[in-house]
Amino acid sequence: MPEDSRNAIEFRDVVLTFGPQVILDGVSFVVRPGETKILMGGSGTGKSTTLKLVLGLLKPDSGQILVDGEDVTHYKESQMMKVRQKIGMVFQDGALFDSLSVYQNVGYRLAEQGADEEEIEETVQRTLRFVNLEQAISKMPSELSGGMRRRVGIARALVGSPKIILYDEPTAGLDPPTARTICELAMKLRDLEGVSSIFVTHRIQDATSLAREHATIDDNGELAIVKNTRPEQNASTQFIVLRSGKIIFEGDGEALWSSTDPFIQKFLE
């Protein structure tokens, strides 16, 4: 099967320390094209840090980081700017620019690139429609609810159609229906747009939905979220569990649920 051989993201033996604290202690993994890697682990285990390493917001002490087949480990900030165009990041709590409106937040990347107003407006409207927030276009971030902020954050990450999306706990602190909406967005991007991603989450419901369901266009041409029926449909979602700087589990959903490791058992409860 001839497949795009360039991995979306690859970590090779990455070590990261903050002073005496070892956060990542030789972490290696691969995110294949079109794959969603669900990254789990207790709080403070270095999940956000891992995403920041992909973006080059932090640099590892040793090891290599590859993005879209390119070794970006030693890239300077100016070189990293080009790599970042391929990546959309959904920050924990949104990290919306609170001095800018929803419109300006979502259109930020285009505006910075000097796109004309017409193009920005068209893209912002289309992207907000995708996350179902057209009515909020002229609001300020302080007027939004938690779920809306996350969705604006997702919309902002989607502008420029990045092939890689990093989600940092996009469902944390949200009510179940809103969290579900966000997981469905991630499925749409994974299954219909071919986006590769790392999805950090604590919620086991997110993991179950992403691993066992997929988005498709049904016979009426409508978007539908359906249960996976064939094993290869499960393959697009893989799991990593981090603990004390090491990866203690790597594999697909079924392997995770049937894991006998007591720590993972406790985690899945």
């Binding site: 973006l55 700017m81 970042r84 990041m89 709590d93 990290a95 990347r109 910075e112």
Partner: peptide, 12 residues
Amino acid sequence: SEQIDAMRALGT
């Protein structure tokens, strides 16, 4: 609030 990181992530 990670807005500085977000700015860098968006290429500024």
